[in-house]
Nucleic acid binder design. Structure first.
Lengths: 112, 112
DNA sequence: ACTAAATACATTGCATAGCTATGTATTTAA
DNA sequence: TTAAATACATAGCTATGCAATGTATTTAGT
């Protein structure tokens, strides 16, 4: 068993998948960044680094798939909430279709 | 719908996944590179570029997950056949476990 | 009261992998 | 005879995850 290979591979596998995960979570309700990290860890056991998530959210915004809004708190640091756009929803549908076909075909290979 | 985003995303999603696919296919029998491209296209509809596969196979070999052997043909160009190693098999089991957990958790997010 | 941890955002630089383009060489089909 | 297919390979570009680092506020522990 090649531990180093597996470690690097796990990082590579996350590329692209994290955007899929974030968009799907934002499709349910609005989240702020720090909250998303916890939510993703709870749902997928993926420990997403802050240095990964914040640039990711900026990319999604620049692609017009999400919007962001600063929200002051009664107590504590202001939070930047993200919401999915109409374009984000239609794009997400395409991603989910691609993902489903991909996982189904890989399923066939791993179990035959 | 953001076509450009989707196009880039599909490339990113393949990172890591292609190694999983190749190792799983090699787990059944030996293949040569050019043959793998066709096999992957048939099974997964993923059109893998030659410039992607050959470096990938070299990486797998350098990680001792596969072996390669030149095989002369009665007619035509010699083929370099790849076979999975013992280390490759145990590593692949780990990758498949990670992959199954990952896809199962994403499944929960996309359908809730 | 002081300190460490948690919360909440962000950026820089590195390592890695997919893709296009290009190259070599042989064989087959038009 | 020319184009396409077979079969291998590499260079450079682009994009993303991650560790490290930074700022600032709030909360919990001693």
């Amino acid at each position: 068993m090649n531990e180093e290979f597996i470690h690097k591979w796990e990082s590579q596998v996350k590329k692209g998948i994290l955007e899929l995960v974030v968009l799907n979570i934002l499709n349910n309700r609005d989240y702020y960044g720090y909250e998303l990290i916890e939510e993703i860890r709870n749902y997928t056991l993926i420990d997403i680094a802050e240095g990964t998530l914040y640039p990711l959210l900026i990319r999604l915004k620049e692609s017009n798939l999400v919007l962001s809004e600063w929200v002051e708190q009664d107590s504590g640091i202001p939070r930047k909430y993200y919401s999915i756009t109409m374009d984000g929803k239609t794009t997400l549908k395409e991603l989910n279709i691609y993902w489903e076909n991909l996982t189904r075909s890989i399923q066939k290979i791993t179990t035959r």
